[in-house]
Amino acid sequence: MPKTSHIYDHKVKFCIAGTIFYKIFTAKRSKQTSLTISSYELKEEPIFAPVQLPDLIGELSDLEELKIIGVNLTSLPTSIGKLTKLKTLHLHKNLLSDLPPSFGKLSNLEELDIKNNLFTNLPDPICKLPQLKRLNLSSNPLTGLPDNITKLQHLEELGLSMNVFQGNPPCGKKMPALEWIQLQDNKISSLKRLKNLCLEGHSISV
């Protein structure tokens, strides 16, 4: 990589990190209940360098909605688990491949969107979210789901489109609240009955 390009990437990364820190600091001072950090809102050049979230995010104790979209986020700090009032969390279009164990402490989280990331397996902390109702895992290289996803007894909607999913999706008596699964563009071969099912891009015989 040319030296000038490396310096440019470093400056852009530093600027973005500073902007993110400022937005979080401002949200803390004003006790915001909602915070959005996105590549569109940052108004920077296209983001190529990886970005990390500062530990300060855990001090936003009043936060109920958090959206961090398209900023090449590679990991979440342990302090994310302190956001116990959080109900909605959108982390799509990033570079996440795992979640910290503390993520499972988000006891009031109802909606989680982590589509367009790098998850090859469902992180175990997600299966410890007792109030989760909507989970979007679309556009990740997922091949299947763990058995303990059935612990999500309140899950109503599950997005699994555009993965490399090959197994049977969870449904039936083990997940009584699940009514809607999005499955287009996978490798599903058999299914049980659901109230709503999106299956574009499959060749299934019934």
Rank of each mutant, 00 (worst) to 15 (best):
H6L: 15
I7Q: 12
H10N: 09
K11L: 11
V12Q: 09
F14W: 08
I20A: 06
F25Y: 13
F25S: 13
A27F: 03
R29C: 05
K31H: 13
Q32E: 12
I37G: 05
Y40T: 09
E41V: 00
L42Q: 09
K43F: 09
I47N: 08
F48S: 11
F48N: 07
A49V: 03
P54W: 07
P54V: 04
L56D: 12
L56M: 13
L60F: 09
D62W: 07
D62Y: 14
I69K: 15
L73G: 04
T74F: 12
T74C: 13
T74Q: 08
S75T: 13
S75E: 15
P77R: 11
T78R: 15
L83P: 02
K85Y: 05
L86Y: 08
K87H: 12
L89P: 02
L91F: 11
N94V: 03
L95M: 12
D98K: 11
L99E: 03
S102V: 02
S102G: 01
K105Y: 12
K105V: 01
S107T: 15
L109S: 09
L112Y: 08
L112W: 08
D113M: 02
I114S: 03
K115R: 15
N117Y: 03
L118S: 10
N121V: 15
P123A: 07
C127L: 04
C127G: 02
K128N: 14
L129V: 04
Q131E: 15
Q131D: 14
R134N: 13
R134P: 00
L135P: 04
L137G: 03
L137Y: 02
S138E: 12
S138H: 03
N140C: 10
I149R: 11
T150H: 14
L152A: 06
L152V: 04
H154W: 01
L155D: 08
L155Y: 10
E156I: 06
E156G: 02
E157C: 07
L158Q: 06
L158E: 06
L158Y: 02
G159E: 06
S161V: 00
S161I: 00
S161Q: 14
M162G: 01
N163S: 05
N163W: 05
Q166W: 04
Q166D: 11
Q166G: 00
P169I: 15
P170W: 06
C171D: 10
K174H: 11
L178K: 10
E179D: 11
E179A: 11
Q184L: 06
D185R: 10
N186W: 07
N186Q: 06
N186K: 07
I188L: 14
S189P: 00
S190F: 09
K195H: 07
C198P: 00
C198L: 11
G201A: 07
H202R: 08
H202A: 05
H202C: 05
